[in-house]
Write a protein that binds this DNA or RNA. Structure first.
Lengths: 149, 149
DNA sequence: GGAATATAATTGACATGTCAATCATTTCCG
DNA sequence: CGGAAATGATTGACATGTCAATTATATTCC
């Protein structure tokens, strides 16, 4: 039978989850401020930038960034309206859509990437000792292992 | 001048942030499944349960759980509609509102709490060694320090 | 061939989050 | 006192997220 967490374990849990949340929020705010992109926009643009021919089937894009398809569909609608991506019919499967990076999307991503990496360096890498960074990797692996159990 | 993160640092960063995100999502899903409550609902109900007289001024509630007031206001509207809390006018400051826990809210929280703590134990505490739990506390402190710089 | 099924993607309804604007009351101070 | 500023809270507009239903095409298999 499973025990409940102790007071101290609960304190660490709350500290941990709230801090990672605040970290994510601060990074998103900086990205928005520096580049007018959300972290979702960034993930989509990164995947397309790295894709063969700067284009991907919608479902492959969803798999690459780990999103549900309906979420992606809604998000692509918004990015399309802003001119960051475009949708084309897939030639060999008429059900499918191909998502391609526009010039505008590519240049927005280009402007975003260095400031974003700097922010990661500033808020994560430089905040930790090399041991702590290794510990973060360990933690992620252990937690991920439990989640995928 | 700030260097960019190395490939390895970036790999750990992505692992770390994605895993904590997945952890949060899984915990929210279990809470929803076990208790029909969101983590937001839970935070509000916890704060009210622990408050003197099971009631709090709206702004104090916001401070306790660390939310913006407009976010809280919207959320309380939804919780009010579901009968989990009630709003009353504050007697000594007519601008203010007092939020109070209903019987229904209290019992919903009562049903939620043990399963939720068990989920934290299962997904966090039991996934880690004691050393790793301590390391998680360290990490949170270091990252928090940088965020509050 | 053609009905049943699977797959790709979008859509609609709604929950949640942020930001800026608004409204009412209280407090400050000349 | 009484107008200006501060405070408490809500609201509206919109971005984002989930889930279930829908649409359209492709595949399977008798």
């Amino acid at each position: 039978m499973t025990q409940l967490p102790t007071r101290e374990e609960l304190r660490i849990w709350r500290d941990f989850i709230e801090t990672t949340d605040a970290l994510r929020a601060e990074l998103a705010a900086r990205l928005q401020h520096d580049s007018a992109l959300s972290t979702g926009d960034y993930a989509v643009l990164l995947a397309l930038t790295e894709a063969e021919g700067r284009r991907l089937r919608s479902s492959e894009l969803a798999a690459v960034i780990g999103w549900e398809r309906s979420r992606l569909s809604h998000h692509l609608g918004r990015m399309d309206k802003r001119g960051l991506i475009r949708r084309e019919n897939c030639t060999n499967d008429n059900r499918g859509a191909e998502i391609l990076l526009t010039e505008e999307g590519a240049s927005a991503f280009g402007r975003a990437t260095v400031p974003h990496l700097r922010a990661i360096r500033d808020l994560f890498v430089d905040a930790l000792t090399p041991d702590q960074i290794a510990a973060a990797g360990d933690l992620a692996e252990a937690l991920r292992g439990r989640l995928n159990r």
